[in-house]
Amino acid sequence: MSKMCTEPMRHALNGPTMGTRWSALLFAQAGFDPAPVRAALQAAVDEVDAQMSTWKPDSNLMRLNAAPLGAWVAVPDGLGRVLRLGLEIGRASDGAFDIGMGDVGTAWGFGPLAATPARIRTAMRTDRVPTHQALEIDAGSGLVRKTSPVALDLNGIAKGYGVDRLAETLAAYGIDDALVGIDGEMRALGLRPDGQAWTIAVEAPNADRRAPHSILALQDAAVATSGDYRHWVEVQGRRLSHTMDPDRGAPVLASPASVTVVALTCAEADAWATACMVKGSLEGVQLARRSNLSALFIDREGDLLRETRVGRLFEPRPGPERVVDAGISTK
Rank of each mutant, 00 (worst) to 15 (best):
I182Q: 06
I298N: 01
G105C: 02
M62R: 14
R165T: 10
V235T: 12
S255V: 04
V233L: 01
W108Q: 05
G327C: 03
T260F: 06
R309C: 04
G15V: 12
P8I: 14
D303V: 11
A271T: 14
A123T: 02
A114G: 10
G31L: 13
H242N: 13
S255K: 07
I157V: 14
D177F: 04
G237S: 05
V37L: 13
R209C: 08
A39H: 11
L69N: 12
Q51T: 00
T106F: 05
Q51Y: 02
I89H: 03
P318K: 11
V75H: 08
N65A: 06
V323C: 00
L313F: 13
V180I: 08
R165L: 10
L313H: 12
T54W: 03
A74S: 14
G184S: 15
E47M: 10
R38F: 01
I200R: 10
V150C: 09
W72H: 06
G80W: 12
G160L: 07
T17R: 05
R239G: 05
G162Y: 08
I120F: 04
P193I: 05
R322D: 07
A273T: 12
P193K: 05
D58C: 01
K146M: 10
V163K: 08
W72I: 01
A151M: 08
H213E: 15
M101L: 10
A188Y: 13
F32W: 13
G78C: 00
L85Y: 00
E234L: 05
S2I: 06
E234D: 11
G19I: 12
G284P: 04
G311K: 13
A158G: 06
Y161M: 05
A188N: 09
L189M: 14
L287I: 07
E203Q: 11
K279M: 11
V233D: 01
V163C: 07
V150L: 04
Q286H: 11
Q29W: 04
K146L: 07
R10H: 02
S23V: 08
